[in-house]
């Protein structure tokens, strides 16, 4: 007979500074006031009840904010559910405390990716972006259709202007985005 598993959470299990990390990171983009709203959540559940993804997955919007507030850093960042959100903003629109829920979810996702939590499908899309400047690059079929419709065969984007693509890629490298998403030259 083995020992029963401990069910109790202690401070040693929590990362109480995690919420500060989230606020600090989010503040760089959204501003201090917006990022700080994560502290205002009173767990009313309006967000979860508004969420279209929550109705068909185990994703509970309110739980993500709870985990952040309490300090379940690993739980918050490794949770697959974090990626079920379509960023439809309904939760943020309705939150009675003005919590910028969707923006905080994007912030958490950034922190997750920084810790290496990114699925192959997403790496693939990032690869397209880095290689072509487009998340959805043009294909042969569409080139033909464009001509048929009287449009330019190649749209006047980074697909057409190599110098612009060069600038684009320069920025991507300078920001370290390619390394962040594990992009390797010459791979698919």
């Amino acid at each position: 007979m083995s020992l029963t598993k401990n069910q109790v959470i202690r401070f040693s299990d929590l990362n109480v500074k995690f919420v500060n990390e989230v606020v600090e990171y989010g503040a760089k983009i959204f501003g201090k006031d917006a990022a700080n709203t994560v502290r205002y959540c009173v767990q009313c559940g309006t967000c979860t009840a508004s969420c279209p993804a929550g109705r068909r997955t185990s994703f509970r919007t309110r739980q993500i904010i709870r985990d952040t507030q309490l300090g379940f850093k690993e739980g918050a960042l490794t949770n697959d559910d974090l990626w079920a959100c379509t960023t439809c903003y309904t939760c943020q629109e309705r939150c009675p405390r003005g919590v910028k829920t969707t923006d905080i979810i994007r912030t958490l996702r950034n922190l997750a990716v920084r810790e290496g939590h990114i699925i192959p499908e997403h790496k693939k899309v990032a690869g397209y972006l880095i290689r072509t400047g487009h998340a959805v690059p043009i294909d042969e079929k569409t080139k033909k259709l464009r001509v048929k419709l009287g449009l330019s065969k190649i749209p006047p984007t980074t697909h057409k202007f190599a110098e612009s693509l060069g600038d684009f890629q320069k920025l991507v490298k300078k920001l370290g985005f390619d390394q962040l998403v594990g992009f390797k030259e010459g791979t698919r």
Partner: peptide, 16 residues
């Protein structure tokens, strides 16, 4: 020379 916007829910999720 415009590129992908870049997609807010995708690339905003990876690195803002």
């Amino acid at each position: 020379g415009a590129s992908c916007c870049p997609a807010p829910g995708v690339f905003g999720s990876f690195d803002l």
